[in-house]
Amino acid sequence: MLPALTRRLRQARSRHGALLGQALRFGVVGVIGFIVDTATLYLALWLGAGLYGGRVLSYLAAASGNWALNRAWTFRAAGRPAGRAGAARQWALFLLVNLVGFVANYGTYATLVALWPLAAAHPVVAVAAGSLAGMTGNFLLSRRFVFRGA
């Protein structure tokens, strides 16, 4: 009985350790995505896209980069769909599944920009708050539906 219990505890610790490792890698990718998001937003603002349209563009750029990094690093053990069509489907599924996080992310951003003058003057504050709001849901949904074998 004791060896069976020990084995089960070891397996549970291994699963939780793998989950924690994925969550940490997902967070690192999220920080990179935040940098891409912010840089793209400021470029779009400079080009005249506006606070809201620029944010849609910046989110798409960041989400696409995050998909590629999560596919290659965070969830590399999940297996990959074959060919370009499989990768394109996985990218589209990633964007679709992460719409939940996008709603939290963009909603937080838009609320702060609209109601807090500091965030409107320095959109990076609102981008950061939005990123944090969407990250947890994105991790859980991506792990469950996009990178299933992880």
Score class of each variant (00 low, 15 high):
Thr111Pro: 01
Ala121Ser: 13
Leu96Gly: 11
Gly83Asn: 08
Met1Thr: 15
Thr74Ala: 00
Arg148Ile: 05
Thr74Asp: 00
Gly149Ile: 00
Gly54Asp: 03
Arg76Thr: 12
Arg80Ile: 09
Ala4Phe: 11
Ala18Arg: 15
Ala110His: 07
Pro117Gln: 13
Ala49Thr: 10
Ala150Met: 02
Ala119Phe: 04
Ala121Glu: 14
Pro3Asn: 06
Thr40Cys: 11
Arg10Leu: 14
Ala133Pro: 01
Arg55Trp: 08
Ala12His: 09
Ala61Gln: 05
Ala82Asp: 14
Arg71His: 14
Leu60Lys: 07
Ala121Thr: 11
Gly65Glu: 06
Ser142Ala: 11
Arg76Glu: 12
Ala12Val: 11
Val125Trp: 14
Ala104Ile: 09
Ala129Glu: 03
Val100Gly: 12
Arg7Asp: 10
Ala23Val: 11
Gln90Lys: 07
Ala128Arg: 02
Leu41Val: 01
Ala39Trp: 07
Leu112Pro: 00
Leu132Arg: 04
Ala119Tyr: 01
Gly54Gln: 02
Leu60Thr: 10
Phe94Lys: 02
Leu112Trp: 00
Gln90His: 07
Leu41Gly: 00
Arg8Thr: 13
Ala133Arg: 02
Thr6Phe: 10
Ala126Arg: 02
Gly79Met: 07
Leu47Phe: 12
Leu41Asn: 00
Trp46Met: 11
Gly130Pro: 01
Gln22Met: 11
Phe34His: 05
Leu43Ala: 15
Val125Asn: 05
Leu41Tyr: 00
Pro3Glu: 08
Ala72Asn: 12
Gln22Trp: 06
Ala119Asn: 03
Pro81Val: 06
Leu57Trp: 12
Phe102His: 07
Phe94Trp: 08
Gly107Gln: 03
Gly134Met: 01
His122Arg: 15
Leu115Pro: 02
Gly107Pro: 03
Trp91His: 10
Thr38Arg: 04
Ala77Ser: 14
Gly134Val: 01
Ala44Met: 12
Leu112Ile: 05
Ser58Glu: 04
Ala68Arg: 09
Gly149Pro: 04
Val28Lys: 06
Ala119Asp: 03
Tyr59Gly: 11
Trp67Met: 04
Asn66Ala: 13
Leu141His: 06
Arg143Asn: 05
Gln11Asn: 12
Phe94Gly: 00
Gln11Thr: 11
Arg8Tyr: 10
Phe75Ile: 01
Ala85Leu: 15
Tyr59Ile: 14
Ala78Ser: 15
Met135Asp: 01
Ala62Asn: 02
Arg7Val: 05
Arg13Ile: 09
Ala129Cys: 13
Leu2Asp: 13
Ala114Phe: 09
Gly33Glu: 03
Gly65Ala: 12
Ser58Gly: 08
Val100Ile: 13
Ala49Pro: 05
Ala87Phe: 11
Met1Trp: 13
Leu24Ala: 15
Gly149Cys: 08
Val56Lys: 06
Ala104Gly: 11
Thr6Met: 13
Asn98Leu: 05
Thr40Ser: 14
Ala150Ser: 09
Gly137Trp: 05
Val146Leu: 05
Leu140Ser: 09
